[in-house]
Design a protein around this nucleic acid. Structure first.
Lengths: 354, 354
DNA sequence: CTGAAAGCGCTTACAG
DNA sequence: CTGAAAGCGCTTACAG
């Protein structure tokens, strides 16, 4: 490939276009913004000059002058966590895809784990640029969210429902998802069901634990605190929970794990302790992430519609941006689906294995 | 938590601050920009007013007026590919961490798989905002890169070395990495070594194949085309390569796979065909990603220093941005490291298993 | 349908 | 050390 000659890097502006096309900059601006009130002749002329000169409107100037910016922000918290890796992957993918279909551009913004005062400012600088913002989660970014709301920027919070929030909320029905999962485990005949929880500082973590408890109560089973291992979505913590569970006088026959990644790690840890899954202990995970199918054993899990969550979020944000009147903040909760694979069987069958 | 009263969302500007502090906007601007030529008394006064009013300079105005923007862009191509998921995760993490240490903010920009003309423009709008840009790979974004370079924006390309490029290049020594890997396989005594390649449209894919061939030649072994399965970094393609390899008159005793993700999938596919790893066939992967340790068998692999690549890229970009003179474009190649785990053994040992 | 002009909120010579 | 003023490149009433 022959190296092309460098174009001049002198910035060409709306003035250059106007001059060359023999019209005013107002007309050029109208053409750029697809304002219909321009004579065809002029529009064509301007467009051809734009193409000829390779003119590209300066987004800063446009923004400063009060023009619409077709960019939404996507704020991603605490990127370090592996838990968020799958979640974030799907959310980013979904938001970017949906946004681009609507002609929106996405500015992905990762917030550091420990947000220093200085960086809070920096974050807002860029965010102030967007016509709307989606928070991939609220945890750790409560302050940022508040500031963005105070700036008057429309916001959507994912994965967290809070009626007091002056932002739209789009989330998964985590409570019902885990309720269904544990109902399923119980329906198989399990009596001693443990749980390895996610981070209880995150709503999704709390809700998944709540659903577990609710299911037990619904079936008049006792909630045994020794069967509840409070973890944090990290595989390390999940791994540590395993020997604790095995040290109990009476083994659980099933474990509901609040994420597939933790479930996969728990299964590994169980194996290392010569406990077979599902023969000795059944496992149900959550997420339907790649971890559920990556290992040698397909993990029965709760699928969450992350793609749909992303879609709904973008749509809701667009509505907020375009509603000139003070719109009411949407609250959207998406259903989950139980995906049955091989990691959870009836305890009767388990005995067959012996 | 009690709901705080909403602040006024009326934008407060440098004028408000100046008026309140009893100085000119010039002085306020100097304070904001940490210009030392301000009397302490005034500086303190301005700073306290800024804090009191919650003033935050408008980034668009600042940009338009020619101020420095502490934001670099990170362009990520073809997000759909799973191969890129691990790669991207690490690159994003590394770039964000390093950048924030230098007081830089990162604008992560995902390019769609099929870049329509329109979105090319949109992309540039946002990118034009950054004082420098890092491309996480060049593949699929050649045009964008050229345009960004033509805009006069300093650029760094990761994972691809091209001397003709008017941008800095930071990459992994893929060729040597795979050369070492295959050398290792040969040193174990293997004679029939297959390879499952990555996407040969990507330099990393080509280089890993080249290294494989080079090693064979170095050891005076024939390069047998039937042992080369040209894939694309996707596990699906890798999976399909397995039965083809097994249909050969003579099995390979080892396979060098161009990514751990493909390696993990290949191992699964081999198992399903009752071929044991490493007893029947040895496997060496590439990346040292989580796939290498996630499965039941640790995969021997080539570790690439993605974190270091990110660091070097940010540092190089910073240099390019700050060098007022036309700097020469850096070419940085980072070494790899062979990580020996359980998936590759000597063929003599393999016979022991029979 | 069109254009002159004001203004968005900053930075930066320039003059003091 | 400080400030008045020009200017960055656009949008948007406003008047025609």
């Amino acid at each position: 490939m022959v190296r092309k000659r460098r174009k001049k890097i002198t910035k060409i502006s709306i003035n250059d276009v106007a001059k060359r096309a023999g019209v005013s900059i107002t007309t050029v601006s109208r053409v750029i913004n697809k304002n219909p009130c321009v004579k065809d002749y002029n529009r064509d002329k301007v467009n051809s000059v734009i193409a000829e000169l390779g003119f590209r409107p300066d987004i800063s100037a446009r923004h400063l002058a009060g023009g619409r910016i077709n960019t939404i922000g996507l704020i991603i918290p605490r990127f370090e966590d592996m838990f968020h890796t799958y979640y974030v992957t799907e959310v980013v993918r979904g938001v970017c895809n949906t946004a681009s279909e609507s002609g929106l551009d996405v500015l992905v913004h990762l917030t550091a784990k420990d947000l220093k005062p200085r960086s809070l400012g920096t974050h807002l600088d860029n965010i102030s640029f967007c016509s709307g913002v989606i928070f991939a989660d609220i945890h750790g970014n409560e302050k940022l969210l508040e500031e963005v709301i105070d700036m008057g920027t429309p916001c959507i919070v994912m994965n967290h429902i809070d009626d007091k929030l002056d932002a739209g909320c789009v989330a998964i029905d985590n409570k019902r998802g885990s309720l269904n999962a544990v109902d399923y485990i119980i329906s198989l005949g399990h009596k001693r069901i443990a749980t390895i929880t996610g981070d209880l500082g995150i709503q999704a973590g709390r809700d998944r634990l709540d659903g577990y408890k609710k299911s037990l109560k619904k079936h008049a089973m006792r909630v045994d605190e020794s069967l509840i291992k409070r973890c944090d979505f990290s595989p390390q913590r999940a791994r540590k929970a395993v020997p604790e569970l095995l040290a109990l006088d009476e083994y659980p026959t099933a474990i509901f794990v609040a994420s597939d990644e933790m479930a996969a790690e728990a299964i590994k840890a169980l194996r290392e302790n010569k406990v077979k899954v599902p023969q000795d202990i059944s496992i149900v995970g959550f997420d339907d992430s790649w971890f559920a199918t990556q290992g040698p054993l397909g993990i029965t899990t709760v699928r969450q519609p992350l793609g749909a969550m992303a879609e709904k979020s973008v749509a809701a944000l667009r509505d907020l941006i375009h509603s000139k009147t003070k719109a009411s903040m949407p609250r959207i909760v998406l259903p989950t689906e139980l995906i049955v694979r091989e990691s959870c069987v009836s305890p009767l069958k388990q005995e067959d294995f012996y």
